[in-house]
Amino acid sequence: MELLITVIKIVAVMGVMLGCVAYVVLLERRLSAAIQNRIGPNRVGWQGLLQPIADVVKLIMKEDIVPTKANRFLHDLAPLISIGVAMTTFAIIPFGNRISLFGYDIKLQIADVNIGILYILALTSLGVYGLTLSGWSSNSKYPLLGCIRSSAQMISYELSMGVSIIGIIMMTESLKLDKIVEMQAGWHWNIILQPIGFITFLVASFAETNRLPFDLPEAEPELVAGFHTEYSGMKFGLFYLAEYSNMFVASALITTLYLGGWQVPFVHSLGLSDFWISIVQVFGFFVKIVLMVAFFIIIRWTIPRFRYDQLMNLGWKFMLPIAILNVLITGLVILLI
């Protein structure tokens, strides 16, 4: 029975997530259009709501072009790694408290791993393989430059990402994500307790997801389309999907670590039954994610791309010292209190 519940949870979460990601793409297109005083896609379905479906159909119908002398196997494998990593990360993110359904007490988290945060860091590190392999296997110069940039960038920012989380772990004394969320009940959100850590983590996640202002691996004016220059059809579509999945997962992670996860303040004062409280919490979690995603998008259309040396300067000379400083301050405060 446990297994069945887990399978149902996996299917539900995967479905909801893929759907959300597809609509994140639409959200980005509509929002960016609005920022540029345009309208954006509004033809397919009501206000363009069926646009993601049309896009996917188009991508599937398109020809899959593989460059001559490309490494066919790795060329096919790379987008799968990218999308796979993005999807599996979501497995340990708690999207709600417990819920009682048909007499079963269900924990709203697919897998409660006791080294949760390490798992996440490990998987995001794996993500770099997707980009590196795609760039290398394409047998083309722009993808290769893109993939080299992406590996350097990811390694640099993973450090400050990891270090900024240490502050939270020191406070929680646990690597489990549901513990971290439980810690943030009420208004004890980590964004208030760990403002410096939040900022460094936020910047690092922008870099990890290759979003502007850190989208150097695919910098259009310099590298055509970066690592996925030689991809077309649904393989390109998978990369595209992976980019937005990463954004979605990063938003979920930021929400979980700093914005209280599924915690909704004052929900208990509303006088709802436990079942409805759980529903409100899940809903609150998604609202937070969507707001984070919107933040990602607005940042993209606000801040121009960094130069490569600026990127490295920022990563090693500012982010890392600040993150370490944050650990020291946190340690000092814990020691004093």
């Binding site: 920022i35 309208i39 606000t302």
Partner: peptide
Amino acid sequence: YIPQIIGGMKITLTQVFRPKFTRQ
């Protein structure tokens, strides 16, 4: 920098409510 970024985002966001140029 952070106040500047927030300022930039404010400009970006105000554009959302400006009239659109697109012709249907």
